[in-house]
Design a protein around this nucleic acid. Structure first.
Length: 817
RNA sequence: GCCGAGGUGGCGGAAUCGGCAGACGCGACGGACUUAAAAUCCGUUGCCCGCAAGGGCGUAGGGGUUCGACCCCCCUCCUCGGCACCA
């Protein structure tokens, strides 16, 4: 009798056994090639939802496949454990962030274990533990010493709900906080920044990594490189002042009829003439009142006010009025623009509204010489442009920029949308910024031997949301490491994205205490060969981690600049057509499904839903189908012994061939699909194979010596996706433990080939018949056979056969008039 | 507005190179087993006409290239993602 398939029993049994044997523990090896397969570590928000499983289960399957191919696979796991939710929980439930986080970690560990994955738990890292964040702080000091970390006052994104500033990357296009979706406002604050902009060009270069093109484009959009020129303008009445603007169109500089400054521009205060001051101040106040979205709405009509001041265009000596307008942003370029109404749509609209001249300096082809109805922004010929008259504008861009450089009035330059990374957070639950402020010595970095700067355990969490560190006297008040005098500690902590910018290095040597990592082990394991995770991190984690790695390389800590050689983004699992979130109450917990159907079913079902990069709407309609499939495999394999000898007679040669062909075909298909992360079609192929075997079992084919090859292959092919069932079936069919130390079956190309093929016969592109022919059949023979077919005859009878196309092994198409 | 991904049965999806559209699964329908149900097994299942043989239509819509188009080209519509007054 075949025992029932009871996943609950076998899964726990094998998980315990694998853990006891440390089956997935890896070390450096000379014999096997290494393969570092990493999935973005989870944030310790509480429960894992089905989305986490969607990230982990297929990745685990792919990693298991690599193992079975003979790679030394590093598959570590850890927890991104600093961050705001822990602190909010502290305020709300009166529980310490550490306690809350560790409780979550424990629960998530349990859930991750139930997945039956190949994690090497001995390498686990938790970013909120001092032995980890000591090195986060250490990295900050290295950045500081190298001039890559600096403190500056700047208008920062302020989330009123999170009560902290945010980096640009952490604000959505709609001006909302990426985490809590509150409306973000601006605040002028002294903040710490990392010079990610130093690496803008290298970050733009994806030529050394195999990443999805989509992510490259997103990063490219975000970095926003634009080539142009910086041009200096004089200011009437201020001979020592100079205002620089960035433009992508230096060729239009002779068409400047006014200048526009951002309302917050620091020069405005000085330049505004007394008679214009009231209007300017009112406009500035109005701009400040507006939200970022209101201000940046492209629908809005252009507004602005004249300051009474004039700029001087050095190229033609013209005096042009200076306006302020809210469409000019202080944060981009120099915060001031030269306005060329004839050749820029925004400037055109502005000039029309305020009655400013619109002289044409780039002539469109066939231009009449008259005024324009709208801005002409294409290429043309330079006119009214002094010595550049007659120059094609494309060429003119370069020539004008060079000319400016010769004259000392600016020159060619590149501008980026990307801003430096603002890393200060006015919160408790993060790695402290290891800096001390001394009245005497100024900004003093904490000496490395005094790291880590520990988070005080007894901080008071206030419902006001103010940083608990700021009011923690014992923490803030310290002595200056340089002069020994009284000093204040920095009370801001670091953006948690810093913690996740180097965790993949820590996995190489998680217990190392002489530095953030053991250089020899990093040299062996890194870079990550395959990284997987959500595309929502394109312009945050993935950009930051690349920057970090490049900076560490330049600091001489490593010899590579790209952390992740290959990247794959799984899609998003949504529920009821909406993103899963606690606030929406549509979070799907995998635990219930695991209890009912087993982890193998949940794993395989997630992979079967569709292509991994597509994600999809979670519904459990189909999950029973996957459970049925595993049950069928179970019964097929375990009833094998019972049936042996039941069907007498020897398998025919044709039966054996068919059996072997499908076995080898399936091995090929499954291996190729696993290689390319096509788990859905891999499982479909296994289902077809199983269906075939279930039928073949009723025939003499089951008596073939190759029957065992088929069954063994099936178990081995199932092992990456459904590791528990595979282990149980493998060991119960007389094989040696463990199936997960076996080699993946290899296919014989000669057996895969068909000796007989079915050709489709078309007349004028329509299928009319099929013929079975030997695979070796010649073209002429096929064509001759095809036109003789009974079902084809009526369609060609009495017509002229114009052509016959033969696609080898596939079809014949007879073209008639 | 710009850039990108996508649109295939009742549903999830398949079709690796321009060559059988709808693999595999869910659901539905019919049957077997059962006192009955569940489970399991067998069969049918894109739409339309037809008793059938068979025929026609069909991959968001329209046009094109080709012997042949889900696939390539042009236009339109819809969904999702990124950027967006970026000078």
């Amino acid at each position: 009798m075949v025992p029932d398939y009871k996943p609950q029993d076998i899964e726990q049994k094998w998980q315990a056994k694998w853990a006891e044997d440390e089956l997935y523990r890896v070390g450096e090896s000379d014999e096997k090639p290494k393969w570092y397969f990493l999935t973005m570590f989870p944030y310790t928000s509480g429960d894992l939802h089905i989305g986490h499983w969607y990230a982990e289960a297929p990745a685990d399957t792919a990693a298991r496949f690599k193992r079975m191919q003979g790679y030394n696979v590093l598959r570590p796991i850890g927890f991104d454990a600093f961050g705001l939710p822990a602190e909010n929980a502290a305020i709300k439930r009166n529980i310490h962030p550490f306690t809350w986080t560790i409780q979550n970690v424990e629960n998530m560990r349990r859930q991750l274990r139930s997945l039956g994955a190949t994690y090497d738990w001995s390498r686990e890292v938790v970013t909120c533990l001092p032995e980890y964040y000591k090195w986060t702080e250490w990295f900050f000091l290295q950045f500081y010493k190298a001039g890559l970390a600096y403190r500056a006052k700047a208008p920062a994104n302020w989330c009123p709900k999170c009560q902290t500033v945010l980096a640009n990357e952490q604000v959505t296009a709609q001006g909302l906080c990426e985490r809590c979706e509150s409306l973000v406002t601006k605040r002028d604050l002294e903040q710490w920044f990392l010079r990610i902009t130093n690496y803008a060009d290298e970050l733009l270069d994806h030529s050394k990594i195999q990443w999805p093109e989509r992510i490259g484009l997103m990063q490219k959009n975000w970095i926003g490189r634009s080539e142009g020129a910086e041009i200096s303008f004089g200011i009437d009445g201020y001979p020592d002042e100079d205002i620089r603007v960035f433009t992508t169109r230096p060729d239009t500089v002779y068409g400047v009829t006014f200048m526009v400054f951002a309302p917050e521009h620091p020069l405005i205060e000085r330049l505004t003439t007394p008679d214009h001051r009231p209007a300017v101040e009112a406009y500035v106040a109005e701009t400040r009142r507006q939200s970022e979205i209101e201000r940046q709405s492209t629908e809005k009509e252009k507004t602005g006010v004249f300051t009474g001041a004039y700029a001087i265009n050095r190229l033609n000596g013209e005096k042009v009025p200076i306006f302020i307008a809210d469409y000019v942003l202080l944060s981009y370029g120099t915060g001031a623009v030269m306005a060329v109404p004839a050749h820029d749509t925004r400037d055109f609209a502005f000039a029309k509204k305020y009655g400013l001249p619109i002289p044409v300096v780039i002539a469109p082809e066939g231009w009449s010489g008259g005024p324009l109805d709208e801005a002409y922004t294409e290429a043309g010929t330079m006119v009214n442009s002094g010595l550049f008259d007659g120059t094609p504008s494309v060429e003119g861009k370069k020539k004008v920029a060079e000319y400016l450089k010769d004259k000392g009035w600016g020159g060619p330059t590149v501008n980026y949308r990307l801003r430096d990374w603002l890393i200060s957070r006015q919160r408790y639950w993060g790695a402290p910024i290891p800096i001390v402020y001394c009245d005497h010595c100024g900004i003093v970095p904490v000496p490395e031997d005094q790291l880590p700067v520990l988070l005080p355990e007894d901080a008071e969490f206030r419902p006001t949301g103010e940083s608990p560190l700021k009011y923690h006297e014992a923490f803030v008040n310290t002595t200056c490491p340089t002069c020994g005098g009284p000093a204040k500690r920095e009370s801001d902590t670091m953006d948690t994205f810093i913690c996740s910018s180097w965790y993949f290095l820590r996995y190489a040597s998680p217990d190392y205490d002489k530095g953030p990592f053991d250089p020899a082990k990093v040299k062996y394991w890194l870079p990550v060969d395959q990284y997987t995770g959500g595309a929502e991190h394109a312009c945050m984690h993935l950009l930051y981690a690349r920057f970090f790695t490049m900076a560490l390389r330049d600091l001489g800590l490593m010899d590579f600049g790209e952390p992740f050689t290959r990247l794959f983004n799984q899609g998003l699992i949504i529920a009821d057509s909406r993103k899963m979130s606690k606030s929406r109450g549509n979070v799907i917990n995998p635990d219930l499904y695991v209890q009912e159907m087993g982890a193998d079913t949940v794993r395989a079902y997630l992979m079967f839903i569709g292509p991994w990069d597509q994600g999809g709407d979670w519904n459990d309609n189909g999950i029973s189908g996957m459970h049925r499939f595993l049950n069928r495999v179970w019964n097929l394999v375990l009833s094998d012994e019972d049936l042996r000898g039941k069907y007498l007679g020897e398998a025919s040669e044709a039966e054996v061939r068919a059996l072997r062909r499908l076995t080898h075909r399936t091995v090929k298909k499954v291996a190729e699909d696993l290689e390319r992360f096509r788990f859905n079609t891999m499982l479909a192929a296994l289902m077809e194979f199983t269906n075939y075997l279930a039928k073949a079992r009723e025939t003499a084919a089951a008596n073939s010596p190759y029957w065992k090859e088929a069954i063994d292959s099936l178990i081995l092919m199932l092992a990456p996706a459904a590791p528990h069932v595979a282990e149980e079936l493998w060991t119960s069919t007389g094989h040696e433990y463990s199936v997960h130390n076996q080699r993946f079956p290899v296919w014989d190309e000669a057996l895969v080939k068909e000796e007989e093929i079915t050709l489709v016969v078309q007349v004028n592109g329509k299928v009319r018949d099929r013929i079975v022919v030997p695979a070796s059949i010649g073209e002429e023979e096929v064509k001759a056979q095809a036109r003789q077919l009974e079902r084809v005859q009526p369609f060609i009878h009495g017509r002229e056969v114009r052509n016959i196309f033969y696609v080898k092994g596939r079809l014949v198409n007879i073209v008639v008039s």
